[in-house]
Each structure stands twice: as structure tokens, then as C-alpha cells.
Design a protein around this nucleic acid. Structure first.
Lengths: 145, 145
DNA sequence: TTGGGTGCAAATCATTTGCAATTAT
DNA sequence: ATAATTGCAAATGATTTGCACCCAA
């Protein structure tokens, strides 16, 4: 199991990966990002980071998120409504289901869909640089057909 | 072929469908929307509408787009970067390819992908209310494999 | 006539940026 | 030492809204 020291090491590694200085504010934000499983927006990340390091400003949260994104450490999502939401980059690529009632985010992955996307683009003379697939869903009623 | 009178009739019909009054400004905006094939944003629609009816304000463009959307007359898209872009609602549902170099929008449709989306959602206990699929693409070089 | 619609300017919201002070290296 | 980073406040950019006047039904 990883203790506080290990975690800080990871943060530091991620920051060095992004080629930027290790500051108190950035450590706090990275800690929050690492723990988050709910794709929070900048305001929420700021709120959580301040609990760890009171001196973090919202401007720094935005600035850091931008460099972390450029460094491939986090992914930025622009779901319907509200501002951008973030998640740490992990293993495999995935798309998202958004519960329209609760706002909850579920990740999923479909090789078949990815293949079909490439096929469609190819037939039209294009190649896919990146894509965006979001399913806005509602939980099925227990007894519904 | 449809003449000016026919076109105005269509506009009026669309406005009545949305349950709102027929004004000079709305006729102008609808005319612009009907002619557009490039998914313009509000600023661009405003610019074009002013050429027909100088008195249209940007605020009215936004207000009208909102009611037209609620009335099912237009669709609003939030592609990456910049503001919302609009298109008149037409026949079949479709998704979009966006040329990352030119900003051009190409429409496509894939029953297979739609089916897969429904399957995936169902397996997770959800049903798709609506979705969003955008392929950000680049034109394939002529001689590339 | 009269309530919906309009232009204008001011207000929001999310995000960015200028600048002087701070701090990691 | 010194260039990167920060907080703060002001600036942006897209979109919305309050309000007094206007016009479609």
C-alpha cells in the first residue's frame, strides 16, 4: 500500500513529466485529481485543493490544469452544460455515459465503435485525429420491458 | 422551384410550429438558417441576418435560436472550441465529422454505431436519451497508404 | 388594445491574463 | 540569483437578462 511519501513521489514525477516546477499548489491539485473518481470541474477541484493547501487560487487551478493537459497528465472534457470537467489520464481510452438525472459519469469502451468510426472517416477520405462520444442516459426502470 | 413567397410561407409555418409571432427579425433569421449549409454560430447568423433585416440584434438572434430549438426547428451543437453552432432540423438523425484544419462540418449516419450505443447502455442498465458523436478528422494525404 | 417581441446596455459565467510579489531551482 | 509561479483583480468571450418602447394578432 502507498503511504503519503509514495504519493508525493508520484505527484512530483507527474509534475516533472509535465516539465514544470514542483509547488505546494500543484501538489495539492494533483493529490485531489488522483483521488477523484467523479470528473470534477475547476471550481470543485479548487474547493478540494484548498482543503489541502489554503493558498491555491482558482487562477492557478486553471493554469495548472492547462499545463497538465498539455503534458498528457489529465484529460479535459466538455460535457453538455456547465464548465469543463477533468480526470487523470489512465490506461486505456474510453468514452462516457452521463446520467442525465444525477450527473454521474460512467466510463465505457467499445472497440467495435472505434473501428466503425475509423471506417466511416476513411470512406470519406479522412482519418480520425480524436473523437468524442457521449451517451446521455437515464437509468432503466427496474420492471420496464 | 420555390420563389420568395413560398419561402416566406415556410418561414411562417416554422414560426407557427414553434408557437411564436411572425416578426421581421425572425423571418430574416429563418431565411439565413434555411440557406446555410455550414453550421454557423450566433455571431455569423447575426451578421447574415442583418443583411436581410438591418434591425436584428444579436440578443434577438440568441433569443430566437433558443425558442426555435425548443420548438424543434433547429439543432444546437457545442463542438470543440468557440461558441454553439446551429443547423435547421432535417429528416434523419446524423452525427458530425469536423475537419480540424478547415473547420468544415460533414454529416454522416451509422445505424451500426447507434445500435452498439443502445446495446452498451442497456448492458449497464441505462437507456440512451440522446448522444453526441463527433469525429475530429484530417483529410488523408492523396498518396498515403 | 395588449401581451409578446425588440434593441440596448448591463449582468452572468467560465476562463484567461497583466502585474507585482513570491519561490523553486 | 533569477526565471518560473502565484494571487489578485481586471479583462475576455459567449450568452443572458432587465427594462422601456414597439408591433403583431
Amino acid at each position: 500500500m502507498s503511504d503519503a511519501a509514495d504519493t508525493t513521489d508520484k505527484m512530483t514525477a507527474a509534475l516533472r513529466k509535465a516539465g514544470i516546477r514542483v509547488t505546494r499548489q500543484r501538489i495539492a491539485l494533483l493529490g485531489v485529481l488522483a483521488e477523484a473518481t467523479d470528473h470534477p470541474d475547476a471550481i470543485e477541484l479548487h474547493k478540494r485543493a484548498k482543503e489541502i493547501e489554503q493558498s491555491v487560487s482558482l487562477a492557478t487551478v486553471y493554469r495548472t490544469l492547462t499545463v497538465l493537459e498539455e503534458g498528457g497528465v489529465v484529460h479535459r472534457h466538455a460535457f453538455d452544460g456547465g464548465g469543463a470537467r477533468f480526470e487523470t489520464t489512465h490506461e486505456e481510452h474510453h468514452d462516457h455515459i452521463l446520467d442525465v438525472d444525477t450527473g454521474e459519469v460512467i466510463e465505457f469502451q467499445s472497440d467495435k465503435i472505434e473501428q466503425l468510426q475509423d471506417e466511416i472517416a476513411r470512406e470519406l477520405g479522412y482519418e480520425v485525429v480524436h473523437h468524442r462520444l457521449e451517451l446521455y442516459c437515464r437509468k432503466k426502470a427496474a420492471g420496464s420491458s
